[in-house]
Structures are given as structure tokens and as C-alpha cells.
């Protein structure tokens, strides 16, 4: 299958590993990945901050960048939700976007990608993955199939981590208070790695875990699924 990759601006600038991992997993499963080089950003930060008008050219550009592709995969639940929920209104059409784990399980029918990752991992279901995309147990099903991986239950997993896009700076104190509770729950599991399907949330919780020198790191689920046996 020919699959378009929407990397997202955040991953493009700061988290190259997530994009590389998506490519590796999809190629390992025998699919062809297409990366339209002109792609930039879905406009989510603008849209959610109240700059709807500024978002329209970005949405149109996205549609043009990925025109002709039947499947566009992205390692970001919140960007996929942005496109799915709002592009019909902003750009007149809704491109066929899929969150990475959703694509693996629902479109490709794969629940074991043949990865190995001998570590203790806990999973945070990000709000947009959980409530807007209804990812359910797709990410954890994939993680459970990884050789050597021990998946630990995260207390109050469904509670928001406090990132919230520009909320993280507009309401930094509240954001940090929420992130602190999330990070504390992560540490209470004894996990070495906190995994999620949104690097934005991981940047927030991971930023706290790193500042505290906690010894627990964050990884995108795709990176774990790309780990070689």
C-alpha cells in the first residue's frame, strides 16, 4: 500500500525519531511510504487558540500537499483529530488521515509488528487520542505484543496531562500542576519509559521528568514499535 506520512511540524522540528519510526514500521510491513516534502503544519495551534482565519490557508495547503493519497498516516493523535474534525469546514474536504496505531490495527489489521523492547513501559492515553479518535486499546494491544515489554498500568490514566497546546504557556501554572500529577503517577508505576501517541503531551510530561532528573524517559509508541528484535 502507498501511504502518505504527515510528520507534523512539532515532530519535524523536534522529534525526528517518531517520523523515522513510522517509516521503519510501515516499510517492515511491506508498504511504501510517501513523504510530501512541502508539508508543514495542520494549523491546530492556531485553530485552538482562536485564530481560525489564519488556519484556512494551512488547511488548504495540507489538502493540496496530500492530494491523491488514499491513506495519510501521522504519529500525532491531536493533529489527526484536528484534520478529521475541522477540515471539512476549513478546507471543504476531509483528507483520509489516520493516527499511526489506528492505521496499523484498523486498516492494516496488524496487532503485532514484530518488535522487541525489553523494558518496563507505562502508557498515557492522550485526550485527543482517547476522546476524539476513540483509539481505545489499539495502542496498548500493539504494545502488549512487543517482545520483552512489560506494560504497567498508569493510575488515573484518562486524566489530562495538562499540556493543552498554548494552555501550557497561557496557563503555565495550572499546566504544570496537572503535569506534575501525571508525572507522579508515571513514577509510581516504576516504569522506565512513558509512552504515548502524541509527542506534544510527551514533551510536557517529559520536560518535567527531565527537569526532576527522574530517570524515566518518554518515547512515542511508534519508536517502541520500531525497535528491532
Amino acid at each position: 500500500m502507498r501511504v502518505g506520512l504527515f510528520l507534523t511540524c512539532l515532530n519535524d522540528a523536534l522529534f525526528p525519531a517518531a517520523g523515522k519510526a513510522v517509516v521503519r514500521v510501515l516499510e517492515r510491513l511491506g508498504h511504501e511510504v510517501v513523504f510530501p516534502a512541502g508539508q508543514t503544519c495542520c494549523g491546530q495551534a492556531h485553530f485552538n487558540t482562536g485564530y481560525r482565519r489564519e488556519c484556512v490557508p494551512l488547511a488548504r495547503k495540507f489538502v493540496a500537499d496530500f492530494a491523491g493519497l488514499d491513506h495519510v498516516v501521522s504519529p500525532s493523535a491531536s493533529c489527526v483529530a484536528m484534520v478529521r474534525e475541522n477540515y471539512r469546514e476549513l478546507a471543504g474536504q476531509s483528507p483520509p488521515v489516520f493516527e499511526f496505531t489506528e492505521f496499523l490495527v484498523d486498516v492494516l489489521g496488524v496487532t503485532d509488528v514484530g518488535a522487541a523492547f525489553p523494558h518496563r513501559v507505562t502508557y498515557h492515553p492522550t485526550c485527543h487520542g482517547l476522546r476524539l479518535l476513540d483509539l481505545g486499546d489499539r495502542p496498548t494491544t500493539l504494545l502488549r505484543a512487543v517482545r520483552g515489554l512489560r506494560l504497567l498500568d498508569l493510575p488515573d490514566a484518562a486524566h489530562c496531562c495538562g499540556f493543552g497546546g498554548t494552555f501550557a504557556v497561557k496557563n503555565a501554572d495550572t499546566s504544570v500542576a496537572m503535569g506534575t500529577d501525571k508525572a507522579r503517577h508515571v513514577l509510581s508505576t516504576g516504569a522506565e519509559v512513558l509512552a504515548a501517541v502524541d509527542n506534544s503531551c510527551l514533551m510536557h510530561v517529559g520536560g518535567l521528568l527531565s527537569r526532576w532528573r527522574s530517570g524515566t524517559r518518554v518515547m512515542h509508541v511508534a519508536e517502541i514499535l520500531a525497535s528491532d528484535p
Binding site: K20, V23, F35, P36, M203, G206
Partner: peptide, 27 residues
């Protein structure tokens, strides 16, 4: 003030994509 930022190291995604020899081609 309260959070570190991730510092990307090594190749960017685009450098990696341009240089690698994978089965997927560039569009």
C-alpha cells in the same frame, strides 16, 4: 520555568529521509 525542552540530536527527519536507501521512494 518548570520544564526542560527536548534537544534533538543527530540527523533531522528530512536529512535522514534524503540520505537513506529505503524501499520507499521520494514522491
Amino acid at each position: 520555568e518548570a520544564r526542560d525542552l527536548p534537544v534533538p540530536s543527530g540527523e533531522t527527519f528530512r536529512e535522514w529521509w534524503a540520505n537513506r536507501e529505503g524501499p520507499s521512494g521520494r514522491p
